[in-house]
Design a protein around this nucleic acid. Sequence first.
DNA 1: TTGACAAATGCAAATGGCTTGCATATACTA
DNA 2: TAGTATATGCAAGCCATTTGCATTTGTCAA
Lengths: 143, 143
Amino acid sequence: MFNLIKNHDCRQELKGFEVKATPARLAVMKFLESSNQPVDVNAILDYLTRESIHADPATIFRMMNAFVDKGILKKIDFREGKTRYELSSKGDHHHLVCTNCGNVERIEDSHMKEFEEEIKKKKKFLVKSHSLEFFGICQNCQS
Amino acid sequence: MFNLIKNHDCRQELKGFEVKATPARLAVMKFLESSNQPVDVNAILDYLTRESIHADPATIFRMMNAFVDKGILKKIDFREGKTRYELSSKGDHHHLVCTNCGNVERIEDSHMKEFEEEIKKKKKFLVKSHSLEFFGICQNCQS
DNA sequence: TTGACAAATGCAAATGGCTTGCATATACTA
DNA sequence: TAGTATATGCAAGCCATTTGCATTTGTCAA
């Protein structure tokens, strides 16, 4: 029943973005909502396999691009040679990526707004988006 | 003669990083120094061709990785599906990438130090590096 | 200056993320 | 419930990047 509610929510959301609500898409949305860090296409495919939902990689890549274009998702780059994706609805924040263990922590955005204002004023450049990730050693790996 | 001096400088620099100074490497360093924005491997190969220096792509990719490991270069991602590289010696700054015309402008780093301090204090995360690029519309493309 | 050795290179093949063309299937709307 | 735009599957292909291996070339000590 919980799933039904969830699926219903996503259905509405996808409708709002003018994209069709297919089983694969609903499952992907559910996965993205439940994930506490940006995921890559392989993680999505694995999840779908676990859920016994068949999907071709090409379909997922196309889905990701469509969702990014619609503003549903953001692309995130952790310098892994592949793209990760995150729900835009998760709000503005950045990531602390541990280069030792791979752990990812969220950190709220507290300086970018003013930075972007500054850019608009000083450079007359209209910022649409930015990417900011921090790389280093997490607390756990320091000891 | 100017070139000799330049080459000599790079030779010393490379020596400092404990890597061998080959003709290709000296040329690449010269190119990176003269460039006012991060360059990709193809741009490097084109430059070398113009300078009549033969080099295999694999060699350049290996060179880039070695230089990044040694701290000579930084990797930069402009969301183009390929990596750009920039001399670390060019200092801390970020880029304004126009998604319309592709123009790249530098902007000095004015908020990251405090942000990183905050991260160290609040999250006990030891920041080694970060990536920050802004995407939007440049002044030229706004009119 | 030379000889030895580690490091760098060239070439070819392979990898991997991502895209594309086309035929088919499916979700939405009237 | 039929019609249509959209989404999907599959196969082929693209492009950035890596890798194995044989060969060459800096570097440094003698």
